[in-house]
Every structure is written in C-alpha cells, then in structure tokens.
Design a protein around this nucleic acid. Structure first.
Lengths: 152, 152
DNA sequence: TATATTCCTGACTAGATTTGTCAAGAATAG
DNA sequence: CTATTCTTGACAAATCTAGTCAGGAATATA
C-alpha cells in the first residue's frame, strides 16, 4: 500500500480546481503555481486524470483543464485510483496465493485494511473535503492514536 | 503512506509465533521457513521488534524468539509502527506547513486518513486476527469497493 | 571444556520506484 | 500569424526497498 506524492498532488490540484470553479479552463501553470507543485510533473499526472474522465482539457490560448462533472460527484478515491497503481495492501494482489499457493496468515487482515482505506476515500468528494464537513467529528478523537506517526 | 513487505513480513511472522505459542523460544529459521520469508531479512526486522519490546530473544541452542506478552495484548499497529517509518500520509509529517508554510488544501484529509488506518490497526491484536473475529462483518461488504484495487 | 546453535551487528548491493526534467509537436484563440 | 497551452515520449537522478553477507557473541548440552 503506497500513497505517493502522485496521489497527493493530484488531489490537491483538483481541490484547487474545484475551489476556483468557473466555466473557464484553468492552465496547469496556475494550479502548479498556487499549490507549489512542479508544473511538468503535474502535467504528467493530468494525463491519467483525463484518461479517467475526471478532467476535460482544451488546447490553445485560454485553454487548460476543468472538472468533467460537479465537484460533489468526484470522489477522492477515484482521483487516487487514476494515478496510483500500488494501493493494494495484500502481498498477493488479492489473489490469495501469498504463502506457498494459499492465503498467508495475514491475508484477511490486509484485505480488510484495503476496505477501510477504500471506503474512506470513496465516501469523500472534492466538495466534502472543501467543506471539511463529513468527517469533522473524526478529527476530535485523534489524540488517542499517535503511535504510528513519527512525532519528531 | 507506505506499507511495505517489512510490515507485512513482521506481522505474518508474529502471527505464526502467536499461533505456535509455547513456552519455548522459536528460532528464526523455523518462522522464515514456514512463512516463506528470507531468513536474514526477517532477522533484520526482528531487531526492531525486540527494541520495541514486542519480542524477547535468547541466544544459543534452543534459543530464538518469543512474544513479550500475551497475544491479545500485542496490536498490529504496534508491530507496524516498530518496523515501518513512513506510515504518515501527510506531505508535511503532520507539521501543517505543506503549502508555502501553511496547510495545503488536502491536509485535513490526509490527517483523517491517518486516523482511519491507525485506529484500524491499533484496534486489532494478534489474537483478533487469528480468530478472524472482530472484523469479519466488514468483509461481507467488500464487493462495493473495487475501484482502488487493480483487478488484472 | 568443546562444539554446535542461535542471536547480534554493521556494512553492502542490486533493482525498482519515485520524482521529476526536457524537447518536439499539435491545436487553437485572437 | 503568433503566442499560448496541452500532448507525447523519452530520459535521468535520487531515494528506497528488499535482501545478502561476514564476523562476532552468548549459551545449552555433552
């Protein structure tokens, strides 16, 4: 399971796009500049998002990108799915042959972890994140869980 | 956020150790053999687990490793925390300076994702996983979420 | 005491992956 | 026409993972 800057950059850029939503196309240089993302790198990521029908592009002056549908219909999970290719936590890509042809002792654990992460990401749209609404209550409990995160 | 084979090997090896729980020490070669994990690599991982007081070791003939406490008191999250060092999903290691000194648009999203993953892993002990009990109901819903996981 | 067993430590390496860069080309608004 | 912007493909450096290896220290057993 690997969430890289690819996924993080993509989500951030699309949040920016959703925030500054108009009918105009927004050039990549604007997004990259505002969000401190290397332009050519973001360009590369936007290829995947266009292929996944999340973005619409237009060339030439006044060209750029815009969201293919309303921001409440684009899920964070869809964005990440479009740019990341190693989000699966199982050792066997879900095939159940992780230990000498059959399931390893931890197989179901990783499958369930997959489900946790996926449902979290698929339940949230760009709009949800901008509103910071649907998951605000979760925030308050965070003090109980510091062990996994480096605090230095 | 990166869950590597380090974390997966460590959890699998400790599940094996919990499964074959006796008062004896179990040599690494036994665990590595049974779980198809490269021995010297597992040895490397066990250093971290000993430092984290999850394992007790003993040298010499009839030596090996055993769990430092009952298997229901060792959480999966503790194991992963001991061997993985990049489980944080935020771009800024939680410092909130991910975008020109302040929080990027996605900061709270990644913080909440951290919480989801941590609470999932910290809620499960070795015993829970072996019993396959505490999270079985979650399994049944999985068909709805396939988008993130490569199906090929 | 001798010996085989097992952990302990540190260094090293090959390969994969990420994180970018770059150049040339195509479309298009004005 | 021309400047702007996306499009595509190739390339490269840095980092990280996954695993190896050698030498040493402790200890149970005979």
């Amino acid at each position: 399971m690997h969430l890289t800057t690819k996924g993080k950059y993509a989500v951030t850029a699309l949040l920016d796009l959703a925030l500054n939503e108009t009918n105009d196309f927004v050039p990549i240089s604007d997004l990259a500049g505002r969000q401190s993302i290397p332009g050519p790198y973001l360009e590369q990521l936007f290829r995947y998002l266009r292929k996944a029908d999340i973005l619409i592009s237009h060339r030439g002056p006044r060209g750029g990108y815009k969201l293919s549908r309303p921001r409440n219909e684009i899920k964070i999970g869809q964005i990440i799915s479009a740019v990341e290719d190693r989000m699966d936590a199982t050792q066997c890509s879900g095939e159940g042959n992780c230990s000498a042809g059959s399931k390893c002792l931890a197989h179901n654990l990783w499958t369930d972890l997959n489900y946790q992460v996926q449902s979290f990401l698929m339940d949230k749209s760009l709009e949800d994140v901008l509103k910071n609404a649907t998951y605000k209550d979760v925030n308050k409990k965070q003090k109980n869980y510091k062990l996994l995160i480096a605090t230095g």
